[in-house]
Simulated assay, not measured.
Amino acid sequence: MSLKGIIFDLDGTLLDTIDDLADSCNRQLEEYGYPTHPAESYRYFVGNGVRKLVERALPDTEEARKITDRFVQDFRSDYQDHCFDRTRPYPGIPELLKRLKQDGLVLAVLSNKPDTETKKVVRHFFPKDQFHCAAGHKEEFDVKPDPAGVHAILNKLNLRAEETAFVGDTWIDMQTAVNSGCFPVGILWGFRDRPELEDAGARAIAADTGELYSILNTAD
């Protein structure tokens, strides 16, 4: 295996989080007196960090823009209380990670979810030694597709970009891989589709975890 490390996106890649995200945001929309959205809509609201999610969910009005900061805080508070309600690893993910770890690969997570929430759900759903590093969005870095978060992980784990794959389900993840020099691998069980991943630079796309394992074994 030529790869030494793999960085995974979290929401839509390792964990199916869409229902808990939708429920938390919709509860706040109801509290503020705004219309709610079906869970399917949140597949396109998420990906660029919590603030963008909120901006997309709120009406495009001056009134809504004025309360965005407060809404973000209320949403985060609600989500921290409910982030385990309906979230689950995608089928085959625990087994995939176990195999990759046994193969000696260095595994990491990089999410645009805030760092506190990222670490919380990773600790809850995966063994404590599953990942060498799990990081979410921090104020000192821009959100993906800016490569700063990837570079921080590579430096921390003594990996080079050319020996590392970045695996995700959206154009944001593929562009993050391209921008950082990692090998871009898209997956189809998440929130977006094949054309989006291909257009954003995916060099390989997996339909299931078995195919993903094969791709990661032959990537160069």
Rank of each mutant, 00 (worst) to 15 (best):
S2P: 09
S2N: 09
S2D: 14
S2W: 14
L15M: 11
L21V: 07
D23W: 07
S24C: 04
C25F: 11
C25K: 14
C25E: 00
N26C: 08
R27Y: 10
L29F: 02
L29G: 11
Y34Q: 07
T36Q: 15
H37K: 06
Y42G: 04
Y42S: 04
V46R: 01
V46D: 15
V54F: 04
E55L: 11
R56M: 04
R56V: 00
A57M: 10
D60I: 00
E63P: 00
R65S: 12
R65M: 05
I67L: 15
I67S: 12
T68M: 09
D69L: 07
R70A: 03
F71M: 05
V72L: 07
Q73L: 14
D74K: 06
D74M: 10
F75C: 01
F75S: 01
R76I: 05
H82L: 09
R86L: 10
P89E: 00
P89M: 09
P91I: 10
G92K: 07
I93R: 05
E95L: 14
L96Q: 01
L97A: 12
K98L: 10
L100W: 08
Q102Y: 12
D103V: 00
L107P: 15
A108D: 09
V109D: 03
V109P: 06
S111E: 01
D115C: 03
D115I: 01
D115G: 04
T118R: 00
T118L: 01
K120Y: 14
K120A: 08
V121G: 12
F126R: 14
P127E: 14
P127G: 11
K128I: 03
K128P: 00
C133Y: 13
C133L: 15
G136F: 00
H137E: 06
K138L: 08
D142Y: 13
K144E: 03
K144C: 15
P145E: 12
D146M: 01
D146Y: 05
A148G: 15
A148W: 02
A148M: 15
V150N: 02
I153E: 05
A165Y: 00
A165P: 02
F166M: 11
D169C: 02
W171I: 03
W171C: 02
D173V: 08
V178K: 13
N179A: 06
G181D: 04
G181P: 06
P184G: 13
I187W: 00
R194H: 10
L197V: 10
E198C: 02
A202M: 12
L212K: 02
Y213T: 03
S214C: 11
S214W: 10
A219F: 09
A219M: 06
